[in-house]
Design a protein around this nucleic acid. Structure first.
Lengths: 204, 204
DNA sequence: GTGTACCGGTACTCGGCCGTATCGGTACAC
DNA sequence: GTGTACCGATACGGCCGAGTACCGGTACAC
């Protein structure tokens, strides 16, 4: 982590000298991510982002050197754990709530992941930012959920299905648009948890 | 149509007049799909495909009007059912064999799907070709497998997990690279079938 | 031998985007 | 009031790719 004199959290330290307020920065980040969702990474242009936020291309290039660095910064600043705070005391209910939460941001994040999925193969920084922003936090939250369930004795430690729970949840989330032509909503995911995940874990 | 001299299957009828042999056409299709896997849809250029197949850009544009139409033709010509011929008489063994087969082409098809995933949102023909080539045949094969299992009484009809089996299989296949950084191999998928799919279906 | 029609190669137009440079305006410090 | 440093606008260079046009070569029909 090499954390040294870093009193600035996610926003770049330069924003002190810049006249870009954090709120303004958020607008840039939201705009670029939204356009990536809509048009794909390659089709997004710095000019387009500048126009949609009524700023100048120069402003963007002054803060961030290149387009991938800009996008990576946007991703890092958008890191949020959507499963945060889920802890009902029961694994089944935890998973149901997670499914419900996942259904709510399914459209947005799935599209972002899809749009960036191939761009990351050519840019290391982008790949890392994507994992840190969208993948790792949710996986970690899910694994904590499972670990609590194991600690409570709801599932035996080392149960073979445990390792697949995150992959299943994310997988179903991501492929539903391809298979059924619509994003996975909360209802679909909750039924999935009850029909597959919990039975596989030996619950109910 | 014009079914006389019916040695021309799905290659365009015009290839009669073209001097491009079906084998040569295959080279073009293989090349463009391979380059899409490696560089992504947007980064693939007609010039690149022409160069790698030692033909001329003119030749490609003579046969196919535009880049998306060319890619769509390549996809349609590459349709193949990988699960074809799996019918062991036991649902569990069918699924295991399907998992093994899926593991073998996982790298290739997953990358193709990922690379095209966002391009299809802007081109209708491409989207249809992708579904016909990579998605629908496999789903149909899986569903037949399940239907046979139900018919044999191995799983009760209307079992709630049935509808999720295709989504699970494809989902796990697709997200594994994102989660674990490697493509799903046959071993991983077979263990998944045994740890999750079969228990969810009430088999073991 | 003659014609036809396709192939490969090259050169070209056109448009788009990245990233840079320049310039006037303006908020803020002191 | 003066200086400074950033903002927004615009223009520009450079590059690259889609798609077109044109040309010589050649296989094949008759």
């Amino acid at each position: 982590m090499t954390s040294q004199a870093s009193d600035e959290p996610e926003t770049v330290a330069a924003s002190r000298r810049s006249k870009i307020t954090p709120e303004r920065e958020r607008e840039f980040f939201d705009a670029v991510l939204e356009q990536i969702r809509e048009c794909g990474y390659d089709s997004v242009t710095m000019e387009g982002v500048a126009a949609s936020t009524r700023c100048s291309k120069s402003t963007l290039y002054r803060q961030w050197k290149t387009k991938p660095q800009f996008v990576a910064a946007a991703l890092r600043a958008s890191r949020r754990v959507r499963f945060a705070g889920i802890d009902t005391g029961s694994l089944a209910e935890d998973l149901r709530q997670a499914a419900r939460a996942a259904g709510d941001w399914s459209g947005k994040d799935t599209r972002l992941l899809q749009a960036l999925g191939h761009a990351v193969t050519s840019d290391q920084e982008l790949a890392q930012a994507l994992r840190e922003a969208l993948v790792h936090p949710e996986i970690a939250a899910l694994e904590e959920m499972l670990a609590r369930g194991v600690a409570r004795g709801e599932v035996p430690a080392g149960h073979p299905a445990l390792e697949y729970v995150p992959a299943m949840m994310f997988g179903v989330l991501r492929v539903r648009p391809v298979l059924n032509g619509q994003y996975a909503d909360a209802d679909y995911l909750v039924r999935f948890v009850e029909a597959v995940v919990l039975p596989a874990l030996g619950r109910r």
